[in-house]
Design a protein around this nucleic acid. Structure first.
Lengths: 154, 154
DNA sequence: CAATGTAGTTGCAAGATGAAACCGCATACA
DNA sequence: TGTATGCGGTTTCATCTTGCAACTACATTG
């Protein structure tokens, strides 16, 4: 069945899921952060089917997460690189890493000093908050969920 | 085809994807943070097929993200509540929200003061870092990817 | 007690993922 | 220059996943 589309969803989480919620997409982004650039590099590190990888990379390019650039070794090939928008997904990858670690392993480090790095919640007035101190801003779900990229009613 | 399993993956991001990477799972977690507790509440707010929701809720319970508790209105029904482990996914939801906002909307607020809240990267020595200042800790992908929950070689 | 509500269960179809063979162009090397 | 290998896909087919809607059994309500 055609997946429900969240492209026009009022909720930004849903819109993000629309872009990177397909199986393999977040791991592709992770590998892009880890320096993978070539089709074959992604394919080997992930062990993903080539046809799926092709579709995924195309979508990530279309959604502005990755861009195609000339290969860095001067060959006629092309490489995939994170866009500025795509770089914003570092916090998502970092959060998933922290959660998957269960708080024990070090997943992220300072490039220069090698110190471990974590995510924290910060209020606009500068205070650091605990998860219990915050809440999601409610959004209206009145926008009908589109099943087949149906055009919105005029 | 049976989805590749990341249960035993060396990378914590992959392990997280194993738990919450199915279509709908992250939105269920989002709704749990938003206060949804009943099967019917999740079903209505998400517009998800009931059979899929059933399977998803079961998996989230099995993976320790949600727990089943007696209904808060004293009826014989049960409700789904985030576990302590599940509460750790707030950072994931927050990160997805920020990325989906493109930096413009307010997605998370301080419960008491109503101030907007954002995620920041903080080094263990207390400094706040920019995304370009950090890198993922490389992990070995030597663990074979399991296709059908295959048992690891001894 | 009948009607409605709730939390699923079931059957079926279209779409998604994985495996592997195939293809055409690019590169390397003798 | 010619052959072998590498690269980035494309194609076909099988199994799994998501969505739809009808059905079921228990709970609640008036």
């Amino acid at each position: 069945m055609k997946r429900t589309s969240f492209t026009k969803d009022a909720c930004p989480v849903a819109r993000s899921v629309q872009s990177v919620g397909d199986w393999w997409s977040l791991l592709i982004v992770r590998d892009a952060f880890a320096g993978k650039r070539r089709f074959g590099e992604f394919q080997k590190s992930l062990g993903v089917a080539k046809n799926v990888l092709t579709v995924r990379l195309k979508k990530l390019v279309a959604d502005g997460v990755l861009k195609l650039v000339p290969a860095s070794d001067g060959s006629a090939y092309q490489e995939y690189a994170l866009t500025e928008n795509g770089c914003g997904l570092l916090l998502v990858i970092a959060a998933l890493g922290e959660w998957g670690c269960g708080g024990s392993e070090v997943h992220l480090v300072d490039r220069k000093k090698g110190k471990s790095v974590r995510l924290v919640l910060r209020s606009e007035d500068g205070r650091t908050l605990a998860p219990d101190d915050v809440q999601l801003v409610p959004v209206s779900h009145a926008e009908p969920r589109s099943k087949r990229a149906r055009q919105p009613a005029p």
